[in-house]
């Protein structure tokens, strides 16, 4: 039986900049920041209240997963906002939105009432969208 999700990949354009954004703006914590064999960087972050779900901040680079052309295409798609990180939960969407706006986080939709709750839509500094949702039902 699958009991949960431990790691999810988020493609970012620059790991250092993404780390700053996720920790200093969104308030995430660093899970792992390790230099691996071959000089690769394994970088994960997590929401403070959910340490068992880590976001793997990975740069699309030429390598076993992508050839050079594909890596460039992925980077372009990330920057264009084609990918989403997912839904970040909050107990007070308006307050969290205000706090994030004050920190310079870009939003494409302010808190808006939906059937399931109050939701705002934001972007990370690579271009990935995320939802900030206060569930009410």
């Amino acid at each position: 039986m699958i009991q949960g999700i431990a790691h999810v990949t988020v493609h970012v354009l620059d790991q250092d900049e993404a780390l700053t954004f996720y920790t200093e703006k969104l308030g995430f914590e660093v899970g792992m920041d390790m230099t691996m064999d071959g000089g690769f960087r394994w970088l994960t972050v997590f929401a403070k209240a959910q340490p068992k779900l880590e976001l793997v901040l990975a740069e699309p680079k030429e390598g076993p997963m992508f050839d050079k052309d594909s890596a460039e295409k992925i980077r372009d798609l990330v920057a264009a906002g084609a990918f989403g990180v997912g839904v970040f939960e909050t107990d007070d969407c308006q307050k969290t939105y205000d706090e994030l706006i004050a920190k310079g986080v870009e939003f494409t939709q302010p808190p808006t009432e939906q059937f399931y709750g109050i939701e705002a839509l934001g972007k990370d500094n690579s271009g990935n969208w995320f939802s900030l949702t206060q569930q009410t039902v």
Binding site: M36, D37, P64
Partner: peptide
């Protein structure tokens, strides 16, 4: 397990990432 001194071996992260991201 590591190939280089003071580096983490690939075995210390989930294999799917080691293989797909880093070619391990």
């Amino acid at each position: 397990l590591a190939n280089e001194p003071h580096r983490f071996p690939m075995q210390s992260i989930p294999l799917c990432f080691a293989q797909n991201l880093f070619g391990f």
